[in-house]
């Protein structure tokens, strides 16, 4: 319905003004955080805080990255990156092969496995926190990258997405490949995988954000500060009670924590929208 027929003069201005107001509201918290990350602690503890950026950006970010609170932020960023990439690649890899099995093979218990994967939709980690933690502890996965990644890589959504995609690929393509002499592995590698490129990329964007933004699981599984991810590690910087903390450093950390996923969204907006819309189908 774009355009909504005519609109002229002040109505047009009002429309743009409305949108800009909306954007201002949406972006305000981040702007405030940005300003706070460029001033000194002294500027903040005497309210109201300034509303224009100050000159201390480099200083605050350097402190955050190399010192932080206990754990330097670079270390947490690294942990987050490993976790996010691990979850993303892991989810895509195990989902695409299981979707391949379900769509292109006929075998006993096929539907049983399908429903088993489907049911995981109903079991978010938040719901089974304690026993899942217990399993991870029993497998000595605490404070390890494996522990951060492995329990989160089962994905019904990604499996369904690939299944959906495979079902739209014409049957004749498999037949042509079989006549050309391709077996199941060759077909997967030479035909299916290259044909799924865009979907894999779109899913990558969405899953990277999902992985990076994990909070509860890293909170449970990493007790060693060196294994903290940035999204949960920032919690340890926050004041408990009336304790004073250096807000400029915390805000710099917050901005650093959102930078990678935001960059992914901005630079891959088309893939991001595609991934988002498709993974909700």
């Amino acid at each position: 319905m774009s355009g909504m027929v005519e609109k002229k003069g002040w109505r047009r201005v009002a429309l743009h003004a409305g949108i800009i107001t909306g954007i201002a509201i949406v972006c305000f918290p981040i702007y405030v955080a940005f300003v706070a990350s460029t001033v000194t602690q002294g500027d903040l503890v005497r309210p109201p805080m300034p509303l224009l950026p100050g000159p201390h950006l480099i200083e605050n970010y350097t402190r955050a990255i190399f010192q932080g609170y206990g754990t330097p932020v670079w270390r947490m960023l690294w942990n987050s990156l490993v976790m996010a990439l691990g979850i993303t690649v892991g989810k895509i890899a195990i989902s695409i092969v299981s979707a391949y099995a379900i769509v292109y093979f006929r075998f006993p218990f096929r539907m049983f496995f399908f429903w088993m994967i489907f049911l995981t939709l109903m079991l978010p980690v938040e719901v089974r926190i304690v026993p899942t933690y217990a399993v991870a502890a029993d497998l000595s996965l605490l404070n390890s990258y494996t522990g951060l990644i492995l329990p989160l890589i089962a994905s019904a959504t990604a499996t369904f997405l690939f299944r959906q995609l495979f079902l739209t690929i014409p049957d004749e393509l498999v037949e042509a490949a079989r006549i050309d002499g391709a077996g199941p592995i060759r077909f997967f590698r030479d035909i299916l995988l290259p044909m799924s490129r865009t979907n894999i990329a779109a899913l990558f964007v969405i899953l990277f954000i999902y992985g990076w933004n994990q909070y509860l699981w890293p909170l449970l599984i990493t007790t060693d500060a060196d294994m903290n991810t940035i999204v949960m590690g920032i919690k340890h910087m926050l004041p408990t009670g009336d304790q004073t903390v250096e807000w400029p450093v915390i805000m710099a950390t917050a901005l650093l924590a959102m930078l990678p996923p935001v960059a992914v969204v901005l630079f891959m907006q088309r893939l991001f929208v595609k991934g988002l819309v498709e993974s909700e189908k």
């Binding site: 890899a93 195990i94 989902s95 092969v97 299981s98 391949y100 099995a101 379900i102 769509v103 292109y104 093979f105 006929r106 075998f107 096929r110 496995f113 088993m116 994967i117 049911l119 995981t120 079991l123 089974r128 026993p131 899942t132 217990a134 399993v135 991870a136 497998l139 492995l150 329990p151 890589i153 089962a154 499996t159 495979f166 079902l167 049957d171 498999v174 037949e175 079989r178 077996g183 199941p184 592995i185 077909f187």
Partner: peptide
Amino acid sequence: KRVTFNNKWLPYLLLAPQIVVTIVFFFWP
């Protein structure tokens, strides 16, 4: 699919990672 591959063990192998993770970290807990 109308046409599928005939392979006795390959589909189970392909499903194994997803199913193992699902059992260990979803159904068991």
